[in-house]
């Protein structure tokens, strides 16, 4: 007996929710890879905490998607039985951890969006999303603070840390445009007051990131071409490898309960 991946009926709202859920799961998974390998024990705890928060957000969002879809799927079927082309996360989330500087930079870029995002979503007309947002906002506020403090210290630390931090900015900058995308289906949800228009979060993001990079004595790259594709399932080479690890047991022992 073999597993086949599930098929998801992606109505606009289901698709929307899955996109956010996948962001949280994939990024949470990446952070969990640091366990046992961190530069400081206290920092392993912190990364673990952030990872747990994100996995928790993912689970709430998957549960909502399942309810909306009404097709008998659940958090595990979404997480373990969709192949890479069906995943809807940002390319930024699946980016490998790299060194600690890259991980913190990725977190800064992500959380500088997530924080105002969840704050805005707390006013969503959708009660479930508003509730998830209220909880997630407190978490993302902390993630943003933690990442910011580290980016500052790495940028304004030693020569070596400064170089590595600048390298991280330069490497990841091209992945920071995707989070502001808004396709036709999402525009309809924005119009209905269900979700926030990501463009409205641009200023907050620019302000936060600009301020942190400046305090970190880091140079903000000129905005050029932005990577894209994750929202419609066109991912980097990294996601396939990540999923093959994550989904291994469910794929190898189809139908089992764990």
């Amino acid at each position: 007996m073999t597993t086949t991946s599930i098929r998801v009926n992606e109505t606009p709202l289901v698709l929307y929710v899955l996109r956010r859920a996948d962001d949280a799961l994939i990024l949470g998974h990446r952070l969990s890879e640091w366990i046992g390998h961190g530069p400081i024990l206290e920092e392993e705890m912190a990364l673990g905490n952030i990872g747990l928060d994100l996995i928790g957000q993912a689970r709430s969002l998957y549960a909502y998607a399942a309810e909306l879809e009404g097709a008998g799927n659940d958090e595990d079927r979404y997480a373990y039985l969709r192949d890479a082309p069906q995943y809807r996360n940002l390319l930024l989330a699946e980016h490998p951890n790299g060194d600690f500087g890259q991980t913190m930079m990725r977190q800064l870029f992500y959380s500088a969006f997530a924080d105002p995002y969840w704050r805005a979503m707390a006013s969503s007309r959708d009660g479930t999303l508003a509730a998830i947002a209220a909880k997630s906002e407190k978490e993302s506020a902390y993630h943003l603070r933690h990442a910011s403090e580290w980016v500052i210290r790495l940028g304004d630390g030693t020569e070596e840390s400064h170089e590595r931090a600048q390298e991280a900015v330069d490497q990841l900058w091209g992945y920071t445009g995707e989070m502001f995308e808004c396709d036709a289906a999402e525009r309809a949800l924005v119009a209905a007051g269900t979700v926030v228009d990501p463009a409205a979060l641009r200023d907050a993001w620019d302000g936060t990131v600009g301020s942190v990079l400046s305090r970190a004595t880091l140079t903000r790259p000129k905005t050029g071409w932005m990577q894209s594709g994750g929202r419609s399932g066109r991912h980097s080479e990294h996601l396939g490898l990540l999923l093959s690890v994550m989904q291994h047991l469910q794929r190898t022992y189809p139908g089992a309960t764990w």
Binding site: P39, G157, T158
Partner: peptide, 11 residues
């Protein structure tokens, strides 16, 4: 991770 610890101390 030495460079990270050094950076924190330097800052």
């Amino acid at each position: 991770g030495a460079w990270v610890r050094e950076a924190a101390a330097a800052y």
